[in-house]
Design a binder for these strands. Structure first.
Lengths: 338, 338
DNA sequence: CTGAAAGCGCTTACAG
DNA sequence: CTGAAAGCGCTTACAG
């Protein structure tokens, strides 16, 4: 393995000079720089990032915590994060696990393995998140947020998006609305439910609690909940689901009972994952600007690594209602958000 | 930040002794060990993994290269890899990008950032793979393989799986078979096509080349290819697709023309991704033992990090035909593989 | 069994 | 502008 010392020997300079050239220091003669660079390519030298990290206290590595990578929304988010990190010359360490996947992230922070962490699936109960903040480690939440913590957060306007869905459904003549929500903890789940309820109240409708179910963001739970709803004596005519995966499960659940979407029941999801636009489902949904959100999350995190102390902010991106066949294609333009 | 020196001071021993205790060395008195461990918890000490890695020349980090994480097969593979690496106490660095995503992996190997790399999407043209092998870096290919390289490789029996699909279709009375393949490079694509062709030949059927299309493993390409095939004067009665995503696209393509699957055309995929079993598609497909494959890949890689020199091997796992509604549910049991 | 010391491969004040 | 030296925080021969 070739080190900077070998390069120095080949170039006839000191090891410190090699380091200076590679750091792009100004204090080097053009002549010296040239000799060093030639020696670098002659020897095939690559700096050892561990040694560099040890000195600089920067690993150029960002941790990303994501559960449920099998929900297609997250691969899209990871892809965006990955591109963004790569262009900032950062490596990405990924923790993904249905269970305590973020424990690894905390360990990595403590062991100085990563410079910062992006939490995409996190709840107020996350010990790693709070521990990281307590240690002043650079952290940003993306997609989900946690109230009352001093931390940069990037989400979209889940509340507004859900309210808009209700306005759209009510505007199309529905008054018996169903809701298949998510678990209690995650902010996405909570905000979309609140948006739904506020929208229903604002429309002056009565919400039948028997039409409100709760699942785990999964296809399976959407499937089961929809079957439940449709076998009620007085089923909903339109069902809003906490995310696309649940909505697609709901559509499949309706079909498993021989019901047609949107003929018998309208279905709306949230996220606009790729498969939402496939013929098999053709799902009306709310789109989040994933690329922009990932971009900002990385930018905020890198800024915070540079210097702590800046006031943390919560950025909420606007959403966009995407109307498709699962709601009988009532024109979307009248429902555009601001 | 607390270091082993701080712990030593607190315990009244030398820094070397702290290190020995943490390494689980035998040459330590129980009494000393106890004092050190108490000092560790009192100070909240966590070893700096960078410093450790610098000394040991092991980062405990494995790189994973995967393109097209938006193909749901790969998240499943990553999840399995992630679990396996976590239980081996290894970190996972992920490179994912549609373009030259594996360039980062090569750089990481050269800079000693990772101990080894799992290539899941790779072709014979991959410069990083060949460079890594040339440098004797620990490497394993998973899912895809490359012929003629000295490298541990873990795949499933794509050839056998595809042949079995043909036997199943022919056994059910089909003689006009279509094929929607993948790109030229990847071994999965090549082997599944070869298996298909061999199966057709073995059945004594004539293969109409106009019924053989090529896509990019994507929903979109399956969609387009199926529309092409179904608008031929003499369309196929059954279409085998190189992977599930293509097959699902093919089903949607058929539906977009008002055709029914399996009434008008049977469709078979490959991978058995989660959505293959959803009502919306209910896809007959070939299942690969993802968990076992990931397990073995990690095991082989870690072995090779321990010591080079062992003869590299290519492990091919058996597959399993999973018959569902997209092929009219002809009983599968008569087609079980050995 | 334990300590003092060397060294992993860099970066960066400090002199000159 | 350049070199000699210190030091990042560990592990591990080498003495004793």
């Amino acid at each position: 393995m070739v080190t900077s010392r070998d390069v120095a020997r080949a170039a006839g300079v000191s090891q410190a000079t090699v380091s200076r050239v590679l750091q792009g220091s100004d204090n080097v003669t053009d002549e010296t720089r040239k000799r060093v660079m030639e020696a670098v390519s002659a020897t095939g030298y690559e700096p050892n990032v561990l040694a560099r990290a040890m000195k600089t206290q920067r690993t150029q590595t960002i941790g990303v915590v994501v559960a449920r990578i099998t929900n297609p929304y997250y691969p899209q988010l990871i892809e965006a994060l990955s591109a963004e990190l790569a262009s900032a010359n950062q490596r990405m360490v990924l923790w993904t696990s249905e269970g305590a996947g973020d424990a690894g992230a905390l360990e990595a922070i403590r062991q100085r393995m990563v410079d910062g962490v992006v939490f995409t699936t996190v709840t107020a109960e996350s010990v790693p998140l709070h521990e990281a903040l307590r240690r002043n480690a650079p952290v940003v939440t993306l997609n989900r947020s946690v109230e009352g913590i001093a931390c940069d957060q990037v989400t979209s306007d889940n509340l507004g998006g859900s309210t808009q869905v209700v306005q759209y459904l009510v505007g199309a003549g529905h008054s018996r609305l169903g809701f298949i929500g998510g678990p209690i903890g995650p902010s996405t789940s909570a905000e979309r439910e609140r948006g739904f309820r506020q929208g229903v109240a604002a429309a002056g409708l009565h919400l039948d609690e028997r039409l409100c179910r709760r699942g785990d963001f999964s296809h399976e739970d959407g499937h089961a909940a929809m079957r439940d709803l449709l076998t009620l004596a007085d089923p909903p005519t339109a069902v809003f689901c906490v995310n696309d995966l649940t909505a697609i499960g709901a559509i499949d659940g309706a079909r498993s009972l021989g019901r047609d979407v949107p003929e018998d029941v309208w279905v709306v999801g949230y996220d606009d994952i790729a498969m939402a636009s496939w013929e098999g489902y053709d799902l009306t949904t709310v789109r989040q600007p994933i690329t922009q959100m990932a971009e900002l999350a990385v930018k905020l995190l890198l800024q915070r690594i540079g210097k702590t102390g800046a006031e943390p902010r919560h950025h909420r991106y606007p959403h966009e209602l995407v109307v498709r066949g699962s709601t009988a294609r009532t024109p979307a333009r009248t429902f555009d958000h601001d």
